[in-house]
Amino acid sequence: HNLTITQGKLFFHYNPKLCLSEIHKMEEVSGTKGRQERNDIALKTNGDQASCENELLKFSYIRTSFDKILLRWEPYWPPDFRDLLGFMLFYKEAPYQNVTEFDGQDACGSNSWTVVDIDPPLRSNDPKSQNHPGWLMRGLKPWTQYAIFVKTLVTFSDERRTYGAKSDIIYVQTDATNPSVPLDPISVSNSSSQIILKWKPPSDPNGNITHYLVFWERQAEDSELFELDYCLKGLKLPSRTWSPPFESEDSQKHNQSEYEDSAGECCSCPKTDSQILKELEESSFRKTFEDYLHNVVFVPRKTSSGTGAEDPRPSRKRRSLGDVGNVTVAVPTVAAFPNTSSTSVPTSPEEHRPFEKVVNKESLVISGLRHFTGYRIELQACNQDTPEERCSVAAYVSARTMPEAKADDIVGPVTHEIFENNVVHLMWQEPKEPNGLIVLYEVSYRRYGDEELHLCVSRKHFALERGCRLRGLSPGNYSVRIRATSLAGNGSWTEPTYFYVTDYLDVPSNIA
């Protein structure tokens, strides 16, 4: 807008934040220059609390790290170098490059900038070799853009010569660093050979998330399962459950009422301010606690030095998902009996873990797994792929695949051998790939016309006998059925096997 004052003059007093240069501009645009008398524009009460600059400061050096910015700028000295009290560095987070010096300023003089007072450097006698002032900004957020400017702080001049310097606002972004852990990993099994893994992005990506790394490792069953005799009275049979499938998407929606109208769909109840505040506090606490764990609990591995020492970490090797089922080394339970199943799973520490690289999504279907087997899954978020990966501390989750139908069934015939004193040795093959492992066998036998009897055969007993022995049988026709019990439950009964026990007292003698 054009402003013209045809008559009258300007009068400025007691404006401590208004620089004289701005008042002189007002004289020019209003056409009143030359009308004012000496005392109409006070030299001592206008701009006496402001830094009124008329020179431009330029930054000469900028260096960044993930949490620091090192700045240096060209030296500046007023005509009387004693008038320079120091520099004021202003900075704040700036997602967009549209910041002005006066953003967030209120009537009390406060604003949204963080201000650092910096002492002037030592003055050199040689004007050509003056030290460049600077400042190291610490405690910054990774991968965050900051708006920065600097200006001088000078003393009051009796001659009211307006001098000083100020830089333009520059924008500097800190470097990326390792992201925080992925949030809320959930693993479920939808079949006997697959596990579905879902997660949420890290709360602090500290860069642009480029991919996720998912490692999985087959877990050995508890050692007590191999040692305890679950045929003993009072000892509860062990059981394991597989990871249940995901709930429906509708039930997972946030901010939804727990109660549904019987007449149909209901609208979600909005969260109160107290609920939102509580969630923010919980989120802040979780982030602080995660940072504490990362800094205190997890110790970084030592990389190899120039002395030739090897990095103890196993090298990563990509495998196809079809090879995942046989990740671990199978060892027989008892070496003397080769027909026992290889369900003991000690994992070799030198073995390469299978892994998958996930790009542009937060889910993965891990296939080719062994049925009813526990897996430990390790999830890392990465925001750099080359020249070397920059990934987060791992988040861990466990899951067990679903049982395989008929995996616990005894394959092959049940054979028998009759000894003296009416002892019958029953023999059968253990299931080759049971659900988890076989903890015991149930032997059901009966003599024709009598009630059915049951015998429990422990895992250890089966390994020693290759089956079991029935003792003290009365003469007669017998039928026997056997079924295995694994961590997933009972298998199917075998087809009945028949044998006849004679009275050993009636056996004919070869003595003449």
Rank of each mutant, 00 (worst) to 15 (best):
S203V: 05
S203Q: 09
P205R: 07
N206M: 11
G207S: 15
N208Y: 08
I209N: 13
V214H: 00
V214E: 00
V214N: 00
V214W: 01
V214F: 14
F215Y: 05
F215T: 06
E217L: 15
R218Q: 15
R218L: 11
Q219V: 15
Q219M: 03
Q219A: 04
A220Q: 12
E221G: 12
D222H: 02
D222N: 13
E224Y: 10
E224N: 08
L225T: 13
L225G: 08
E227P: 10
L228C: 15
D229W: 10
D229S: 13
D229L: 12
C231S: 01
C231I: 01
K233L: 08
G234W: 11
G234T: 05
L235F: 08
L235C: 11
L235Y: 10
K236N: 13
L237S: 09
L237F: 07
L237N: 15
R240L: 08
T241N: 13
P245L: 11
P245G: 15
P245I: 13
E247C: 06
E247P: 09
E249M: 04
E249S: 07
S251R: 06
S251Q: 13
Q252N: 02
H254V: 08
N255P: 12
Q256E: 08
S257I: 13
E258P: 10
E260R: 14
S262G: 02
S262D: 13
E265A: 12
E265N: 14
S268I: 15
C269T: 14
P270Y: 09
P270C: 02
K271M: 15
T272D: 04
D273F: 15
S274R: 11
S274N: 10
Q275H: 09
E281I: 13
E281L: 05
E282Y: 05
S283V: 10
S283H: 15
S284F: 04
S284C: 06
F285P: 11
K287I: 04
K287G: 07
K287M: 07
T288L: 12
T288P: 07
F289C: 03
E290W: 04
E290L: 11
E290V: 10
H294T: 02
N295T: 06
V299T: 06
R301T: 14
K302E: 14
S305Q: 12
S305L: 10
G306N: 10
T307F: 08
G308H: 07
A309Q: 05
D311H: 12
D311F: 10
R313I: 09
S315V: 09
S315Q: 08
R316S: 07
K317Q: 06
R318K: 14
R318H: 08
R319Y: 06
R319I: 12
S320H: 08
L321P: 11
G322H: 08
G322I: 10
D323H: 07
D323R: 15
D323V: 06
V324A: 12
G325S: 10
N326T: 03
T328K: 12
T328S: 15
T328C: 13
V329S: 13
A330K: 02
V331Q: 13
V331S: 06
P332S: 04
T333S: 04
V334Q: 12
A335F: 03
A336C: 13
F337W: 10
F337G: 12
F337D: 13
P338Y: 11
S342H: 11
S342V: 14
T343A: 13
T343R: 09
T343W: 06
V345K: 13
S348W: 14
P349C: 15
E350R: 08
E351F: 11
H352L: 13
R353N: 09
R353E: 10
R353F: 02
P354W: 08
F355S: 11
K357G: 09
K357E: 08
K357Q: 07
V358G: 15
V359C: 08
V359Y: 08
N360M: 09
N360C: 14
K361W: 12
E362T: 06
S363F: 05
I366E: 00
S367Y: 05
G368Y: 11
L369T: 08
H371W: 07
H371D: 15
H371L: 06
F372D: 03
F372R: 07
F372C: 09
G374W: 03
G374A: 03
Y375S: 00
R376Q: 08
R376V: 08
I377L: 13
L379W: 04
L379M: 06
L379I: 07
L379R: 00
Q380I: 13
A381T: 13
A381V: 03
N383Q: 10
N383P: 02
Q384F: 12
D385F: 12
D385R: 08
D385T: 01
P387T: 13
P387I: 11
E388A: 10
E388L: 12
E388G: 15
E389K: 12
R390Y: 07
S392G: 01
V393Q: 03
V393E: 13
A394T: 10
A395L: 09
A395W: 11
Y396E: 10
S398E: 04
A399N: 07
A399S: 14
A399K: 12
A399E: 10
A399H: 09
A399W: 07
A399G: 11
R400C: 05
T401R: 00
T401Q: 00
E404P: 02
E404W: 11
A405H: 13
A405E: 13
D408L: 04
D409W: 11
D409R: 08
D409I: 12
G412I: 04
V414D: 00
T415A: 07
H416T: 09
E417T: 12
I418S: 11
F419L: 10
E420R: 13
N421K: 13
N421R: 14
V424L: 08
H425R: 05
H425C: 04
M427I: 12
P431V: 11
P431N: 04
K432M: 08
K432A: 13
P434I: 09
L437I: 11
Y441Q: 01
Y441V: 09
E442S: 06
E442L: 09
Y445K: 01
Y445L: 04
Y448I: 12
G449F: 14
D450T: 10
E451P: 11
E452Q: 15
L453R: 02
H454V: 10
H454M: 15
L455E: 13
V457G: 01
K460A: 09
H461C: 09
F462A: 05
F462C: 02
A463E: 07
R466Q: 05
R466M: 09
G467L: 04
C468R: 02
L470R: 01
L470F: 06
L470S: 00
R471P: 09
G472Q: 06
S474Q: 10
P475M: 10
G476L: 00
G476R: 00
S479K: 05
V480T: 12
I482E: 01
I482Q: 01
R483H: 09
R483Y: 02
R483A: 05
A484G: 13
S486M: 13
S486C: 01
L487I: 10
L487Q: 11
A488M: 05
A488N: 15
G489A: 12
N490Y: 13
G491H: 02
S492G: 14
E495H: 04
F499P: 01
F499N: 00
Y500N: 05
Y500C: 13
Y500H: 10
V501C: 08
V501D: 02
V501E: 01
T502P: 07
T502V: 12
T502R: 10
D503W: 13
Y504A: 06
Y504N: 13
L505K: 10
L505D: 03
L505H: 03
L505A: 10
D506E: 05
